[in-house]
Design a protein around this nucleic acid. Structure first.
Lengths: 364, 364
DNA sequence: AATATTAGTAAAATGAATTTACTAATTAGA
DNA sequence: TCTAATTAGTAAATTCATTTTACTAATATT
């Protein structure tokens, strides 16, 4: 419940212009004025600032009938960088990303039996490694994507599956002890949803869901153009949607949780295609029941399928679309398109750039 | 994606101050400065304006240790009015409400076999009736609460149950043809959730759910202090959460929808208490399964039970609390309190005032 | 070539919020 | 009981992001 004063409004407007150029590029100053509601003079001023800071560049012009041609603007590649990390179940990915979501200097190391201390050390080493390879002047922040559950507001990794000795790790604080860059931590599902919003097929959509399936089932929701930050554990909780009240009891206390029916085996990606298709077919029947609950609640116009299941993204999307069409009265206004993500299994990494774009200012 | 300019920020800040005084009263200027982040001088200016407009009044003062006493502020009763309507399945309620949520001039007429035209006429008559009884200078807007489904953004009632001849009625436009007041239309569940937020037990909470059960099952969600406006049909869709994938097919296309198991009979309120208790006991078992899905997704700190079920609110809350405790691993941070609403069956009416407070400016 | 139209900019004006320097009212302690 | 310290609130001057007004730039139509 914070109020608006002049410096905050200024900051918001500049960020808004950056985002709109990113999502609508190529776009002209006049079009930006229309989208934002700001006067064309204000847009001129803001854009000049951004060009001077080398965040935005002019890129040709086109006339659409009478009158002076529009001068098109777009975000400049390689102008600024974020340091990105993705903490998965068994691996730590590190990389740099520019404002356009391009990934550079990608490296990964394996994780096993980590403790709070060992994981922190590996993370700090990874950051150091990326920092060395990028012009330090251009680094705007650090984005950490991590499997849940975590408390992103406080920057704490709570108790991720497979990390039996990691508990309540205040990773953001630990990074900030060593580095002055702003740091953001978000779970991989939310980050992947934002990846889709900033850089993917969701750029022009305001309501969609990213459904990530690897060993667990999770989802990130974009609602009214913004990440829905409902809850600390949100993204993981879709797996605990009850789809069979008379079903087996789950470790969460509930009965008939989706995760008990729809989860894929850990070695899924290494199986033969034929075998995967059979498993997928069965899984999607159940998955659809849970997904419909989400669709009913959030009314998305699209669902993007990702994480490890991206290897069979096309097939999964097809199977789910069919199941859902059979269980859902789609009117013209209410049609949900189910598609694989364009980032294949890299969504959480592109997501690390996206959470930085979402949280940090892209200019000095 | 609209930007912030000075007049918009000004408007937002004034509304914010009104809301904060409402929700935290009695509150001092300094405390408001702290909550909003605005300087104390700005708060002085805004409050002076509001006092001059008779929306706010000073109400005594208390010292808390050293220093000058705080001057407490609160919203003035009867200073401005909203015209409120509640379109239920079989009745149309009309009334006036002040900024504090007090209801005046309540009347109701019965509805039966209404068409677009007949319903519009009855609504306009009802508005006229209330308008006659209130100082016209003090009327700030019209709030219409209606059973769903409806499109509140466009102000259209789509196809409410029991109203077989009402379809796509642009009620807001119809009212605005005759009246110059701003008009807002919202479904009864969302409005009831806002009632709780502005005037009820949810005033100090930022995440809670209003669960309304009458003939159907619906919910309104307050998330991060704001009404979650997810979707046109949202509030009604909780009833179509699948709790049994192998269950009966529902009219919505899905199988095993909550509504098929947990709905109460139409004559529920007229039954004997003993009978109601037996029905409720069974219903709550299923209701809990659907409610847990909502709780998992939205992580509320409280659930308020209302609508017709408010007659047995205490009992329902108790039964649901027990069911949920057994199906949900509540940690210290994650505890959900289930309680009856303080407005008994009047939530949608108080909600009509709340949606006005949420949408309109309370000052000229 | 003149006119209408759209894109973009320079310089002056606006006005909400802040800053600075005050007044008002209270307690604690010398 | 007088003084210093502390908290609440206000008056007048200042700040600065945005807008307004009046322009220039570049294009198509007649």
């Amino acid at each position: 419940m914070k109020a608006q004063n002049q410096p905050i409004a200024k900051e918001n407007n500049r960020r808004l212009v950056v985002k709109l150029i990113l999502m609508h590029s190529p776009i002209s100053r006049m079009e930006l004025a229309g989208l934002t509601g700001l006067s064309k003079m204000t847009i001129t001023n803001i854009v000049s600032e951004l060009i001077k800071n080398e965040i935005v560049e002019e890129t040709g012009s086109t006339g659409s009938g009478v009158g002076r041609k529009k001068i098109y603007l777009k975000i400049k590649q390689n102008s600024r960088f974020f340091i990105g990390l993705y903490i998965a179940r068994k691996q730590l990915f590190s990389f740099a990303a520019d404002l356009c979501g391009n990934i550079f200097c990608e490296k990964h190391i394996s994780l096993c039996n980590e403790t709070n201390d060992s994981l922190t050390r590996k993370v700090l080493d990874a950051v150091e490694n990326v920092e060395k390879r990028v012009d330090v002047q251009k680094i705007m922040g650090i984005g950490v994507t991590c499997i849940g559950p975590l408390d992103s507001e406080k920057g704490i990794i709570l108790s991720p599956p497979d990390f039996y000795d990691v508990h309540d790790l205040p990773l953001v604080k630990e990074i900030q002890k060593r580095y002055a860059y702003p740091v953001v931590l978000r779970n991989d599902m939310d980050a992947s949803a934002l990846a889709e919003k900033y850089y993917g097929a969701g750029r022009t959509l305001n309501n969609f869901i990213y459904l990530g399936i690897s060993d667990g089932i999770g989802a990130g929701v974009i609602s009214n153009g913004l990440l829905y930050k409902g809850n600390k554990g949100f993204s993981g909780e879709i797996g605990h949607t009850c789809i069979d009240i008379n079903g087996r009891r789950c470790s969460c206390g509930n009965t008939g949780c989706l995760e008990l029916y729809a989860a894929l085996p850990a070695d899924y990606v290494s199986l033969e295609y034929k075998e995967r298709a059979l498993l997928l077919d069965k899984s999607c029947k159940y998955l659809a029941a849970g997904l419909i609950t989400l669709i009913n609640l959030f009314d998305p116009s699209a669902v993007f399928i990702g994480h490890k299941l991206a290897v069979d993204g096309e097939l999964a999307a097809e199977l789910l679309q069919k199941e859902i069409n059979g269980r859902y009265l789609a009117s013209e206004q209410r049609r949900v398109e189910i598609k694989p993500t364009v980032f294949s299994e890299k969504s959480p990494m592109v997501g690390a750039a996206a959470i930085c774009m979402d949280e940090f200012r892209a200019y000095p």
